[in-house]
């Protein structure tokens, strides 16, 4: 039964129209810098994320990973440097415009919309909803079209909820979810925006291992169809096993990047981050 659900979710709910035909390197970051008061959070970060990959971004606490996400997605304006998405300079663009272009992020600390139900949270995500125009939602002759559109979305959303194992929470207020359930909701919601590139900030923190595996399978399935993922994660084994490409940050700088094997053999990384473990 779970097979069937998974099948439906993969083919129906997520990425129904496939990723946009992006360049080989949809996301590129050049010399990104950001200071907060005296702290240099990001210090000349330069890296690219290749299309159809699962790229890992690792580094110790405070290395500047989340700040990099904030700079890329327009939450903060970089002091210097450039962010390029699908060949377009998006540096300093408003977050909603960046999201609309297909570059979507999740937050490290799950930010559910607490006063709305899980279902409302999810229904918010799909892009280009015609009913978001006030006049279309209000005018008698136009509302039926909005309703049709919404009934179809409802089905999609239910499938996605099934996939994330949170369908029993659909009617609950999101504010009442557990920590792990919030992370799931956040990830599910981000996927429903149908992004081309997804930036995930520690998406599996607090998620149970079985579900984590299924989510990773789903990510790989989408990746094979051309979707691109950049993943912040502290679980070394997971990163080394799952990612094609790993970027290591330390004190705001990119320490090294390459295949998991290359990164593992880099002495600086071993020293700065991996310690004696490897």
């Amino acid at each position: 039964m779970s097979e069937g659900v998974e099948e439906r979710a993969t083919t129906g709910a997520l990425g129904a129209d496939g990723p946009a035909d992006l360049a080989a390197e949809p996301l590129r970051v050049d010399g990104l810098e950001k200071q907060f008061g005296g702290i240099t959070a990001v210090d000349g970060a330069t890296f690219g994320v290749e299309r159809g990959t699962l790229t890992g971004l690792i580094g110790p606490n405070g290395a500047g990973k989340s700040t990099t996400f904030n700079l890329v997605t327009g939450v903060h304006r970089p002091d210097a440097g450039q962010v390029t998405f699908a060949g377009e300079d998006i540096t300093g663009m408003d977050p909603h415009r960046i999201a609309r272009k297909g570059l979507v992020r999740t937050f490290q600390i799950a930010r559910e919309l607490g006063g709305m139900t899980v279902m409302e949270n999810m229904m918010l995500a799909p892009q280009r909803q015609s009913g978001e125009a006030l006049w279309r939602s209000v005018t008698p002759g136009l509302r039926p079209r909005v309703r049709r559109e919404e009934s179809d979305l409802v089905e999609q959303v239910w499938d996605t909820l099934d996939f994330f194992d949170i369908e029993h929470l659909a009617e609950e207020e999101a504010g009442g979810l557990s920590g792990g359930q919030r992370k799931l909701l956040e990830l599910a919601r981000a996927l429903l925006t149908d992004p081309d590139v997804l930036l995930l900030d520690e998406p599996f923190a607090g998620v149970n291992p079985t579900l984590e595996r299924r989510l990773l399978d789903q990510i790989h399935a989408l990746r094979e169809r051309g979707y691109t993922f950049l993943l912040v994660e502290h679980d070394m084994d997971l990163i080394m096993e799952q990612c094609e490409h790993v970027i290591v940050m330390h004190q705001g700088r990119i320490l090294t990047q390459g295949s998991p094997a290359e990164v593992r053999s880099n002495e600086a990384v071993v020293e700065a981050y991996l310690g004696g473990e490897v």
């Binding site: 997605t73 939450v75 408003d94 977050p95 909603h96 999201a99 609309r100 979507v104 992020r105 937050f107 930010r111 919309l113 607490g114 006063g115 709305m116 409302e120 229904m123 918010l124 995500a125 892009q127 909803q129 015609s130 009913g131 978001e132 125009a133 006030l134 939602s137 909005v146 919404e150 919601r189 981000a190 925006t193």
Partner: peptide, 20 residues
């Protein structure tokens, strides 16, 4: 959907922005 976005703004404007 219009009202949904308004509610999202009430709850967390940054999230609404991050969702486009």
């Amino acid at each position: 959907p219009f009202g949904r976005v308004l509610k999202a703004i009430r709850e967390d404007e940054q999230v609404a922005g991050a969702l486009g």
